Amino acid sequence: MSTDPDLLYSEEEEALRAAVRDLLTDHCDAAGVIARMESDAPHDLALWKSLTEGMGLAGLLVPEELGGQGATHREVAVVLEELGRAVAPVPYLTSAVVATEALLACGGEEAAGLLTRLASGRTVGALAVGLHTAPGGAVKAVRQDDGRLHGELTSIADAAVADVLLVPAEDGGLYAVDTSDAAVTVAAQVPLDLTRPPAKVVLDGAPGRRLGDAEPAVRRALRAGAGLLASEQLGVADWALTETVRYLKERKQFNRPVGGFQALKHRLAQLWLEVVSLRAAARGAADALATGRDVDVAVPVAQAYAAPVAVRATEEALQLHGGIGMTWEHPVHLHLKRAKADSIAYGTAGAHREALAELVDLRAP
């Protein structure tokens, strides 16, 4: 019997995709997202409630006995593909994936209680580690003094809507900190990607509840974040390709569709090949995380490939949409900014190539 992974989508995964896409079509149209980016509240908490309380998607990775769905990373990857296509401004990757994975690594009653709250979607969590940090990378820790945390952390994605922060401390512990505490200050930072804004977090003697050891929890969380980010990048790239093909079929020049020009056909064909390869890499990473097989290879392979493809796909979309692609009203800029921001999230493509090289003892000079 073959032990090769089946990277095709199952019937259940396709049904999940259809349900999520229908919801996003009805409640996350491009005009609405762009309008939200001009407001003081970029996160769409109504959409978040529909995804979590309505569909139970925040608890996909949480065991059923803790109030979750007991699903796998493959199902989460499908959700992230659709969220990437819509550039949905919700804290799904940060709360339902990264923070959840950190808590799953901790064990204990405190972590279990938090997992139940995160699975319901009524509580949003965020790992207080810079979004740029690669799995195994250096993590900034805060000072812990008799259960009180002191320090400043930057580039914490979705911290503005987090109810609880998971904070690594210098004593080696991971602590839960409620953002409602007066000793916690969360200040927005200027983002490139307006749909996933980062923030600076200042802890001035904030009370923290120890959850477990920080190092294994952070490593597990960042590894899952990097692996499943590739599925979000796939969604971004696939939207860019699909919309560009549709536009070039409709746009006419010299009384013929622009898409009929040979040079543009070649560009689109090359992009299609890259997006198909990205799908294989992203599915490989999701399956590896779900099964625990070859994770140390599949995740960096996916991230090393995903970032440049997503960026190139959105850049091509911008160029091939011509003048309309340069307008604020067209959503291509949202996808380009998400692709650019994702390209440095959870480690750059270069950092993941270095991780792969280390596995075969091929170190950089």
Rank of each mutant, 00 (worst) to 15 (best):
A237I: 04
D238K: 08
W239I: 08
W239L: 07
W239P: 12
W239Y: 15
W239G: 12
W239H: 14
A240D: 03
L241W: 04
L241T: 05
L241G: 04
L241K: 06
L241M: 10
E243K: 08
E243W: 06
T244C: 03
T244S: 11
T244R: 09
T244K: 05
V245N: 13
V245C: 09
R246V: 06
L248S: 07
L248T: 10
E250M: 08
E250K: 14
K252R: 14
Q253T: 11
F254G: 02
N255C: 09
R256P: 07
R256F: 02
P257Q: 13
V258P: 01
V258I: 14
G260Q: 14
F261H: 15
A263F: 13
A263E: 09
L264T: 14
H266S: 03
H266Y: 12
H266R: 06
R267C: 01
R267G: 02
R267H: 09
R267Q: 11
L268R: 10
L268E: 04
L268A: 05
A269P: 03
L271K: 02
W272Q: 15
L273D: 15
L273P: 02
E274T: 05
E274S: 06
E274R: 15
E274C: 05
V275F: 06
V275G: 06
V275R: 10
V275H: 08
V276N: 04
V276I: 00
V276H: 03
V276Y: 10
V276S: 05
S277M: 13
L278A: 12
R279K: 13
R279S: 11
A280Y: 12
A281F: 09
A281Y: 10
A286W: 13
A286D: 00
D287M: 01
D287F: 13
A290D: 08
A290R: 11
T291F: 11
G292T: 00
R293S: 13
D294Q: 14
D294S: 08
V295P: 10
D296F: 08
D296S: 13
D296N: 12
V297K: 07
P300F: 05
P300T: 12
V301M: 11
A302S: 04
A304H: 02
A304D: 04
A304N: 07
A306N: 01
A306R: 05
A307V: 09
P308N: 01
V309C: 06
V309K: 08
A310N: 08
A310I: 03
V311I: 15
V311H: 03
R312I: 11
R312P: 01
A313Y: 03
T314M: 01
E315Y: 04
A317G: 04
L318I: 00
L320Y: 12
H321Y: 14
G322P: 04
G322E: 02
G323Q: 15
G323P: 01
I324V: 15
G325K: 08
G325Q: 10
M326K: 14
M326G: 10
M326V: 10
T327D: 09
T327L: 03
T327V: 11
W328R: 15
V332G: 05
V332P: 13
H333C: 06
L334V: 03
L336P: 00
L336C: 05
L336Q: 15
K337T: 07
R338F: 00
A341D: 02
A341G: 09
A341L: 06
D342E: 06
S343L: 01
I344F: 05
A345F: 06
A345T: 15
Y346E: 06
G347L: 12
G347T: 11
T348V: 04
A349W: 07
A349Q: 00
A351E: 15
H352Y: 08
